[in-house]
Amino acid sequence: MLREAPAGLPRQAELAATPFFPQERYQCGPAALAMTLGAAGIDVAPEALVPQVYVPEREGSLPPEMLAAGRRNGAFSMTVPPRLDALLAEVAAGNPVLVLQNLSLPWVPLWHYSVVIGYDLDRTELVLRSGTTARTTMALSTFEHTWARSQSWGMVTLAPGRLPRTAQEAPTVAAAVAFEQANGAAAARRVYAAALERWPQDLALLLGLGNSAYAAGNVAAAVDAFRRAVAAHPDSAPALNDLAFALNAMGRRREARAAAQKALSLGGPWQEAVRDTLRSIDAAPRRR
């Protein structure tokens, strides 16, 4: 329960620009997802999402597939912490939240996806796009009862480069890696760059940034990112390996070999990859 408003939260917020798609029968999942994607500037019709999330025999859509479909359509999707204050903070930050509720009781469940687009703390209610209703309000306490039955599951689908206000480091890194796998390394560059503004030392994020720069053909930017990774993690064989690889791609063999040899001296599970890099440095045509 929300005993008191989190500090710094405005009393009211409403993301009125969030588009609305009335749901077809059983298809609140595709409709809700189309709304949050639309809010991120990704125009997809609910019908196009049906083959991506709807499960006919279950007459509904499953939460893991909702996250996956968000990524498939080019959004950075991740769950938000299962707390009302986090939900409100996301809405206040401009991110509509797709929530799963059981509107009924556990023994006669009525599972339903809707989109929280606003709240009013003075009236203690939430504003939602839900079902066939473009704007409905629900008492905060009713929402909490119905939301708790899904373990307070909620997700956002954001334009790449935006992050949830309440995101924690490890889930954000996992979501960024998942985004890269779905959309390719080059497309993930903005996601890694945004996450690094919050967690500038994170090894996986730094390697992700370098890999995405390299994939986009910007080898110099890749070298910069890998240098940052080595500076923050001098004993990381993957960081040194990637720096060596990128330096070699720029024709800077001597520096590349030094980095690879340092990586080799560290031992550990990356030795095979490092040896391959070292061999490719030795095999590279000598520069004139």
């Binding site: 390394a185 996986a204 390697l207 370098g210 095979e272």
Partner: peptide
């Protein structure tokens, strides 16, 4: 030799 490659965020 085996193809040299970058090590990605996911592997780490």
């Amino acid at each position: 030799p085996a193809q040299a490659a970058l090590i990605g965020a996911g592997q780490v």
